[in-house]
């Protein structure tokens, strides 16, 4: 266990239910997230993990249940409000802007912090230029942190998968989020890339104090880096606790290995 300061609960869910037509994706899910912790959501395929992330940042709106975020209760917010209140995320299938360079992709992450309007942009002069450069400086810090200086002008479509995942993390970090949602950040990576990614996640958590909610299939990684783990199966919560507690839970073992009937 790392030595760090875990704070109060900043985000909690009660009785979240979500369905598409007749299909139930989530059934009465409840758990909480504390400030500065790394919270993992695990479960077999189709357990509703990504749906849960989509509920958190306002892509899906649950039919039932309550979300309490920084003391304020809400059923669901839209994606804009969620981004505005400091929630950023990455996607399971990389969702970068394929036609743009790495630099521009990460710059998009700064958009909510930009003040200038399109008229000033069109003139590209005075305040607009100064702002652009100030944000560029910030983005370059992220590029340095993620060690992707050599590809900053490359269109992301041309990059290898592992690098794209890194750029996507960079775009999320550019928003300086207080909560970072990571949807399978290590899927499809080789061991070295996974190690790098783990290092970045831990550094972000450690140095910037960012709260991280993460979905991951690699159990070794999950058990190593998370503070607490929630386990979903068929849209229901079956366990919640520290990695050791979850590992010992019989329901979890059954869900992963299958039960002999």
């Amino acid at each position: 266990m790392m030595n760090k300061r875990i704070g109060e609960v900043i985000l909690s869910f009660e009785n979240i239910s979500l369905s598409f037509g007749g299909v139930k994706a989530l059934t009465r899910i409840g758990f909480d997230v504390r400030e500065h912790e790394i919270r993992a959501i695990i479960g077999p395929n189709g357990a509703g993990k990504s749906s849960m992330l989509n509920v958190i940042n306002g892509v899906y709106h649950p039919q039932e249940g309550e979300i309490v975020f920084r003391g304020k209760s809400r059923r669901g917010m839209n994606t804009y409000e969620s981004a505005k209140s400091g929630i950023a995320r990455t996607f399971q299938n990389i969702a970068l802007f394929k036609g743009m360079s790495v630099l521009d992709n990460i710059m998009t992450g700064r958009n909510l912090k930009m003040r200038s309007n399109f008229l000033l942009d069109a003139l590209y002069w005075g305040p607009a230029q100064r702002e652009e450069i100030a944000h560029r400086r910030k983005v370059e810090e992220i590029i340095d942190f993620l060690e992707i200086q050599h590809i900053r002008k490359t269109p992301v479509g041309r990059l290898a998968y592992g690098l794209q995942k890194r750029v996507e993390l960079g775009r999320a970090l550019a928003a300086e989020p207080s909560i970072l949602l990571l949807d399978e950040p290590m899927a499809g990576m080789n061991v070295e890339e996974k190690q790098d990614m783990c290092r970045f996640i831990l550094d972000v958590n450690d140095q910037l104090g960012t709260t991280i909610i993460l979905i991951e299939h690699d159990m070794g990684v999950v058990m190593d880096i998370s503070d607490r783990v929630v386990v979903l199966d068929y849209g229901k919560k079956i366990a919640d606790g520290t990695p050791d507690e979850v590992r010992a839970n019989q329901d979890v073992i059954d869900a992963y290995l299958g039960v002999a009937h």
Binding site: T79, A88, F91, F97, K98, D104, T108, A172
Partner: peptide
Amino acid sequence: RSWMAIRDMDMAAEVIG
């Protein structure tokens, strides 16, 4: 950048604000 973001991946563009 906002135009290109909407063009390339509108969902992601929305999510980043």
